[in-house]
């Protein structure tokens, strides 16, 4: 492990990681293709593919609506759906496809990179701030930081920061550990036939578990994002 080799390049003073870019783009393409394939021939009486898509839409809508009420939840449906689909595909991608070329990873789970999960978390919390200001106005929004007492201001600010950190790091940690353990088990398989069989069984079990964790984490991410947003949408007292 500890191998931090990555193919990077500089553009406009910003560092880009090629592996991340490929992984993200692949995940996006998979999501898009999947959604595209499922949304063909929409009818009032749904077919199989349409049912799958509608179930997913209902599922994410349910998550969003369970914590956010009113008009905002309807506009956030698309956000929740895209976020869920992207994270779940990103989580599973590394389990099925992991391409290393001369020590540099090119395809993996994008969500096993803290920069990406933190960015998703940052986007969510920025969205929360934005929606909060739009709903309550600047005054109402920033007054929430002074509740219940003025002295809670540092605690509230700190909470904001920890929300951001935990939201991003939880997803990153779960996915990274899954992939890391898969790598370790894979490494075990080089120690002879018996080890190969043992590691095959372990790999199988751990992959299944990682799929489970990937789905759970996507769900958790969307749920927590909704909760964080909903907390910004109401005046505390």
């Amino acid at each position: 492990m500890g191998d931090s080799a990555a193919s990077t390049f500089e553009f406009l003073g910003l560092t880009f990681n090629v592996g991340n870019m490929i992984s993200i783009s692949l995940a996006c393409v998979v999501v898009l293709v999947l959604v595209y394939a499922l949304s063909r021939h929409l009818t009032l009486k749904p077919g199989k593919a349409q049912n799958v898509l509608e179930y997913a839409v209902d599922f994410t809508n349910g998550i969003v609506r369970s914590s956010i009420s009113g008009e905002t939840s309807r506009t956030l449906g698309l956000w929740g759906f895209t976020l869920f689909m992207f994270i779940i595909i990103a989580n599973l991608q590394g389990l099925f496809l992991h391409i290393d070329i001369s020590g540099v990873t090119y395809v993996k789970s994008p969500t096993s990179d803290p920069v990406i999960t933190m960015t998703l978390a940052l986007m969510t919390l920025t969205l929360a701030q934005f929606l909060g200001i739009r709903k309550l106005g600047y005054k109402g929004h920033f007054q929430n930081y002074l509740k219940p007492f003025v002295f809670f201001l540092p605690i509230n600010l700190f909470e904001e920061f920890t929300n951001f950190l935990t939201l991003g790091l939880r997803l990153f940690g779960n996915i990274l550990s899954g992939e890391m353990l898969l790598g370790i088990i894979l490494g075990m398989s080089h120690g002879g036939a018996v080890m190969w069989i043992v590691s095959f069984i372990l790999e199988l079990a751990w992959t299944g578990f990682s799929v489970f964790i990937g789905c759970i984490q996507a769900y958790v991410f969307v749920v927590l994002s909704s909760v964080y947003i909903s907390r910004k949408l109401e005046l505390e007292d």
Binding site: M1, G2, D3, S4, A5, A6, T8, F11, L14, T15, F16, N17, G19, N20, M21, I24, S25, C28, T82, F86, D100, G103, T105, K108, P110, S112, D113, P114, V115, I116, M118, T119, L120, L122, M123, G173, L176, E179, M180, G183
Partner: peptide, 25 residues
């Protein structure tokens, strides 16, 4: 094998931008 260890993570701002833009797209 992995681009990052938890501790030695580098902050690639370009990646952040890329994620945001691709996600929005």
């Amino acid at each position: 094998m992995f681009s990052y260890s938890v501790v030695g993570a580098q902050l690639y701002v370009g990646d952040m931008l890329f994620v945001m833009i691709t996600f929005l797209v």
